[in-house]
Design a protein around this nucleic acid. Sequence first.
DNA 1: ACCCTCACCTGCACGC
DNA 2: TGCGTGCAGGTGAGGG
Length: 277
Amino acid sequence: MPELPEVELAAKALNKAVALKKITQARLIREKLAPDSPPALFEAGLKDAEINFVGRRGKHILFDLGNGNTLMVHLRMTGRFLLLDPDDELPKHTHAVFYLSNEARLVFQDQRHFGFMKVEATSGLQNCKELKDLAPEPFSEAFSDNYFFSALEASKRKIKEFLLDQSKVCGLGNIYAAESLFMAGIAPLKAANSISRKKASLLREKIIEVLAESISHGSTLNIGLENIEAGYYGGGYEGHWRVYDREGQPCPRCEALIKRIVQGGRSSYFCPKCQRR
DNA sequence: ACCCTCACCTGCACGC
DNA sequence: TGCGTGCAGGTGAGGG
């Protein structure tokens, strides 16, 4: 389910929970979870590795390991990490188990089987196929007005679909794309290259604002295992959506009824009055 | 380049 | 109660 804020919260919670622990053993239960490497190689790349740090790039969670490897995880729609108590059974849809040096078990669970993992040499990480074309981080200097406007100018796509393209803007998904377009007052069907420099600047600002707002809502929760969970339910942000999943409800700004259309096979929600162009 | 559909999966909410 | 339909926060492939 997660977009950037949820992945950020999950990575932070994981870092808190497992940094400086050792993976004494990794068990791949569903082989296709790590499609790029045979199970034995995957497990060997993790065995006895110390976890230096857990971070993220875009929507990818990165476990930086002391053995020179990085474990990369994409949660896709329903992936989640859980820390099990000693006498807990493995939950349904558990696809990998990491046994840690403190006797804890870190479990990867994924109802829809879309998530994936891979072990990469940390030295070549930025060149791997998942990361090499990723857009700059929204919170970084590189995600500048100039960068954003140039990218928009070069694309004839509809802005909503443009925002979902991780090589143009990374971290946005269906919710925050809709929310940032609403905040900037831009219709989802508008062509990217028809957006003015001024509107582009506003949209960039709103993207950052909406993502940061969501992270801050989530980060007010207790730190610890709850936060690993929290990453999957909107980071505490659910219920604050202004247009997403509110078809037929009044716009928070003008009371017009929120519309739902389908773009690229996915729902787009917007206010037909506030987001006319 | 762009846009559409399908595929990968399970499960939930809905209407009949 | 059960069964069919459509929907779900992601992304890649293939075709027009």
